[in-house]
Amino acid sequence: MANIQVKKPADLAKASLAKLAAFFALTFFMLTITFPSQAAFCSLRDPISAIQALYSQEYQFRTVVTDVTEADREQMKQQLPFTIHQSEVAKHTLYVLYKDQKAEGFLQARSEWAKWGLVEIAWAINLDRTLKGFYFQRCRSPQCNDTVTRSISHVIQGKSFSQLKSLLSDDGETLSAYGQSVFPIAPRLALLTLRSALKTLAITDISWRKDLQNLAIAH
């Protein structure tokens, strides 16, 4: 007959606590010496709605994932009075849009902090690095409506990096006098959108330079 040993509840609890302690010791060890990662990857979605809104049905797209590094973050400071957040030093995706086998532009989604949470904007960029348009992929404020979107889009569409920069103050924290005059509706949202546009244009050339060269997409 088999000798069955029944563990006492106290022993089980001790064993469980020992496992828990081992788990957290391991976790904190990893925490101190490894790189972090963000949300589970099953939550990643292609910006299909944005592509459909900003490009017509004849366009195809190709994903290009790259590492946005701390050095890239520093390099952005040379072009702008602000830079991306440290938590954005990670892998990011640029979508290259093709029409009739030819590259026609890019699309990149970026998140900006607003006082009510993250605002995610998908940016369509022409090959000459002017803006084709944008799409609020996520904005929890009712202010992000079609009227406001059209009004901001009307100003920034077709503008280059330097033209967009002129809409901002020198420290990049407010709109310039010119910026205030062209964004009479929702100026705070316009400022957030403008900063996102500048970061997107800057980081595209900084972080994806090699990838775009490999795909033979000239600037």
Binding site: Q60, F61, R62, T63, V65, V96, Y98, A103
Partner: peptide, 9 residues
């Protein structure tokens, strides 16, 4: 992982 070929995913 995203698999791509030429001009499309």
């Amino acid at each position: 992982k995203v698999f791509s070929h030429k001009n499309r995913d």
